[in-house]
Simulated assay, not measured.
Amino acid sequence: MTLSVSVKHTFEGFTLDADFKAPAGVTALFGSSGSGKSTLVNAMAGLLRPDHGRVEVGDRLLCDTDQGLCLPPHKRRVGYVFQEARLFPHLTVQQNLRYGRWFAGIRGSDTEERRLVDMLGIGGLLTRRPGALSGGEKQRVAIGRALLSHPLILLMDEPLAALDEARKAEILPYLERLRDETAIPILYVSHSVAEVARLATTVVLLDKGKVLKTGPTEEVMSDPALAPAIGLREAGSVLSAKIVKHHDDGLTELASAGGRLFLPRIGGNPGDRVRVRIHANDVVLSLDPPGRISALNLLPGTVTSIRAGSGPGAMVQMQAGDDQILARVTKRSIAALGLEPGTGCYAIIKSVSVSRADIGAGDQSIAKSDTTT
């Protein structure tokens, strides 16, 4: 189900002028604080009537100001998950879940509810009240309540922002299952590169109320021209790979489009697809294959673009197979190596430089055909 959004709205000192289309899956609205993410999602939910706008989910028109159409929130069939779970404290988890479909006037089925409870891992919480839940548990219940209202689209406005790192790590696998096991399009608002890299199918990059770029996650996140908007310390690449083998020495071998990768042991079984985020700061470039070196990951490729910064550094983008890899190096190194578009080189990546937070389940529902067996 495709998503088509065009919204223009002016506040004092700020104008949101955003226009994008996205395919099925998880579309991430990504950008720094104040870029217009929450304003845009509120316009989609009907909580804000834009000066000019058109919002369409599939073949259902939610807003078209040119036609004088702007459905109220309760008629949009939109599920909204906020930063705080906003559960009813006097109701049990099961009662909170069923409130979603009651409010939408949908009878639903016990089978559907059980499937959702299992997917979100909240079966043991049904008799508890929100006060007895952790932050991550509350958010999973809030997601379940939104889904049981049978929404056309699920809007998630920085749902992990209020959680600590341990709770984020707890809930991210459930969000990956949600992406892969439901057909409902999801608009996910975040300023966290790690969350976007793990979850998003499509990224809409916002900056000062404007859309800088829309496209597949791997493409947008590895674009050197967008590194300043993403953040130089956070810039990097997102690679899709497949688990080949878990070795006895504690390493997991992956097959990516650019070659084999060895990482500290990760979860999953051989054949499972995963996503790996590699920071540009952790990539070393070499013109020749290195000899005796401790780094295990060596990906051959070709420089496709170089973007120099205002300081001593620059972003080098290279293509390895179908993957785009970013490396942040100094201008002096670029000059010493004679790097330019078309130069063949090797990306060297230390196995231990990739943290567990930068590895997530691959999008099984729309995974690319396996060409790296």
Score class of each variant (00 low, 15 high):
Leu147Phe: 10
Leu251Thr: 12
Glu84Thr: 07
Ala347Pro: 02
Val284Ala: 08
Tyr99Ile: 08
Lys37Ile: 03
Leu299Phe: 01
Ala314Leu: 10
Glu218Leu: 00
Cys63Arg: 03
Ala85Asp: 05
Ala308Arg: 10
Asp249Lys: 10
Asp358Ile: 03
Arg115Phe: 06
Leu97Trp: 03
Thr217His: 14
Ala314Thr: 08
Leu40Asn: 01
Ala347Asp: 07
Ala183Gly: 05
Leu254Met: 10
Ser286Ala: 15
Leu251His: 12
Val316Pro: 01
Ile122Val: 14
Met44Thr: 03
Glu113Pro: 09
Ala146Gln: 05
Thr92Asp: 01
Val211Lys: 04
Ile230Cys: 10
Lys210Val: 06
Gly68Leu: 14
Leu287Arg: 13
Pro300Glu: 09
His191Asn: 08
Val26Gln: 10
Ala104Pro: 01
Gly136Ala: 02
Arg198His: 12
Asp157Ser: 08
Gln95Arg: 15
Ser222Met: 05
Arg140Gln: 06
Pro224Arg: 06
Ile349Glu: 00
Ala347Glu: 06
Pro159Gly: 07
Ile153Val: 15
Thr202Ile: 00
Cys345Lys: 03
Asn42Leu: 12
Lys168Cys: 15
Arg177Pro: 09
Arg177Asp: 14
Ala327Pro: 09
Glu113Ile: 11
Thr302Gln: 13
Pro289Met: 12
Ala183Ser: 12
Leu206Tyr: 00
His52Ile: 11
Val26Met: 15
Val189His: 00
Arg167His: 13
Ala295Arg: 05
Leu175Phe: 02
Thr92Ser: 13
Met44Ala: 04
Arg140Tyr: 03
Val244Trp: 09
Ser190Ala: 02
Asp59Val: 04
Thr27Trp: 00
Thr27Ser: 12
Glu170Met: 08
Ile348Asn: 04
